[in-house]
Structure formats: C-alpha cells, structure tokens
C-alpha cells in the first residue's frame, strides 16, 4: 500500500509539476502571477480531446506517432494561446502597477472559461480511451502503463527544459532577462522575444499537463483548470516561486502529500493537508523550499 500511494502521488505530482512550471517561469521573468494559466491547461486538455476524438488511429503500429501528434498539437495550441493572452492582456500593462496585470489575468481566466463553456458545453465530456492500458506488478504494487507514461513524459520534459535553460543561448537570454530586464536589453537581448518564448514554453507545458490530466481522469470540463491551478500555484510557491527546480520539487511533494493524506488520513479533507504544508513552509521559509539557494532566478 505504501508503494502504491507513492506511485499515485508521483503521477499526480508529475501533472502538478508540469503545470507549476508555467506559473514559476512567468513569475521569474515578469514578476507577475499568471492566473490565466489554469485556463491554458484547460484549453490544452480540450485540444487533446478534440484531436483524440476526431483523429482515428489508423493502425495499431502508429500509436506512438499518433500520441506524439496529439501532444505536439496540444502543446502548440496552448503555447500560442498563452502568447496571444500575453500580447493582448499583459503587454500593454507592463509598466502599470503590479496589480493591473494580475487583475487582467483573472479577467482572461473568466473569459476563457466562459468561452469554452459556451462553445464546448457546460457538462463534462468523457476523454477518448485510445491508450492501451496494462497493469504491471512493481514490488507487489500495481502500476498502470498510463502512470508510467505520465511520470516518464513529465520527467523527460523537465529534463529537456533544464538543459534548454542552462545550455542554450536562448536559455541564457532568459536567465539574463529574469535577472534584470533593462541590463539584458542593453546587452542586445530582445526582451519581448524572450517573454513570448517564456509564455510559449510555460503554456505548452501547461497544455501537455492538461492532456495528461484528461487521459488520467478520463474527462474534461470547462472549469477543470481551477482546482489543479490552485494546487500547481501552491506547488510553485512551495518550491520557491520563480525557481524552476523548486516548481518541479514542489509539484512532486504536493502530489505525494495529497496521496498520503487521502490514503491514510481522510479522503474528504485531503486538500487541507496540501495547504497546511504550504502555510508551514511559508511561515518558516518565506521564500519557499528552494527559493534562496539559487541566486539566478528564472
């Protein structure tokens, strides 16, 4: 039972971690909390839903390519939407007070939820089951192929992201912009491009998290982003907002805490434990678990 709860927690945590990266990256660059990110996640899940239900699997052998297409489309769609939101709702407010883009983000979030509610319907829709499900025995615990897939994909994406930020020129530009906009601009970095790139990557990861969420729970709904959004934001704060490794660790910690709370203590109050951990961390380490250890924030 212990191992099974760890596996449940890690799967849940993978989704939170991918989702949390979008919050933390935007905060790192713009020092703003992008509350519309939970809707990017939801739209990503819907893109996956539309692609999966309209595109048939041609041959069983094409399944990996098929899923690759689903994820790429969801990632691109969600990433582009995030950039459009940034251009329309945040960029004009870049030099306004810090509250203005925050409120604008909440507005975008309400708008996108209602847009999807009116176009795709208000009730939850079942996600197409196209991934063959198999059970494996892992030290006496049951693991499903979907859980392995979610965890594996999340870890792979996080690994690629870390490499991208630390090894490439664009990654260096992002780190520089996160440290100081003006100086980065003086050094010849196009800050607007970097900000767009941040939104594309963050939004794309959020979109993938949405598709994984849909596959894992088997349904999509227009307000599905709200609660996971709060959890992912919590994960970002828990790890130290603005810090990539913090968001990843925060996501996994939160997922495991939730699984243990629901499994061992009380399933109806599992959300309370996640937030109690957050309050405790903020009381004793206000910058989050990893907030102060890394000098360079992004």
């Amino acid at each position: 039972m212990f191992i099974e709860q760890v596996i449940n927690g890690l799967t849940l945590g993978s989704i939170y971690a991918l989702f949390a990266l979008g919050y933390t990256m935007v905060y790192g660059i713009l020092r703003m909390i992008n509350f519309a990110h939970s809707e990017i996640f939801m739209v990503g899940a819907y893109i996956g839903f539309w692609v999966l239900s309209s595109l048939p699997v041609f041959l069983p052998g094409f399944l990996p390519a098929y899923f690759l297409a689903v994820f790429i489309l969801a990632m691109l769609g969600a990433g582009l939407l995030a950039v459009v939101v940034e251009r329309i709702a945040y960029k004009p407010l870049r030099h306004a007070s810090r509250l203005a883009p925050l409120i604008s983000a909440i507005g975008v979030s309400i708008f996108l939820q209602n847009l999807i509610m009116l176009t795709a319907g208000a009730s939850s829709r079942p996600y197409p089951e196209k991934l063959p499900l198999e059970q494996f025995n892992f030290f006496g615990a049951q693991v499903s192929s979907l859980q392995i897939f979610i965890f594996g994909l999340a870890v792979l994406l996080m690994f690629i992201l870390t490499l991208f930020i630390s090894r490439t020129r664009l990654g260096k530009a992002m780190r520089a912009t996160a440290e100081n906009h003006i100086v980065a601009q003086l050094m010849g970095i196009n800050v607007n491009t970097v900000i767009s790139l941040t939104f594309i990557i963050g939004g794309g990861l959020g979109g993938i998290a949405g598709v994984l969420n849909g596959l894992y729970y088997g349904s999509v709904k227009y307000n599905m982003g709200f609660l996971p959004g709060i959890k992912a934001f919590t994960a970002a704060v828990l790890g130290g907002i603005g810090n990539l490794k913090g968001a990843m660790a925060g996501g996994f910690i939160l997922g495991i805490v939730e699984a243990f709370a629901a499994g061992y203590i009380s399933s109806e109050n599992k959300d309370i434990f996640a937030f109690v951990i957050l309050i405790l961390v903020l009381l004793f380490k206000p910058a989050g678990l990893f907030g102060e250890e890394v000098p360079e924030k992004i």
Binding site: M1, Q5, N8, L12, E258, A259, G263, E268
Partner: peptide, 20 residues
C-alpha cells in the same frame, strides 16, 4: 465509510487504501 468531494477527479489514493 468514506466521504469524497463533488468535483474531485482523483480517487486513487482512497481506492488504494480501500483495496487493502
């Protein structure tokens, strides 16, 4: 005898402990 919240999507942790 366990309660859950309407709107929850993840019951795996609860079901794992039930399975035991």
């Amino acid at each position: 005898f366990d309660g859950i919240n309407i709107g929850d999507k993840d019951f795996r942790a609860l079901l794992t402990s039930i399975k035991n």
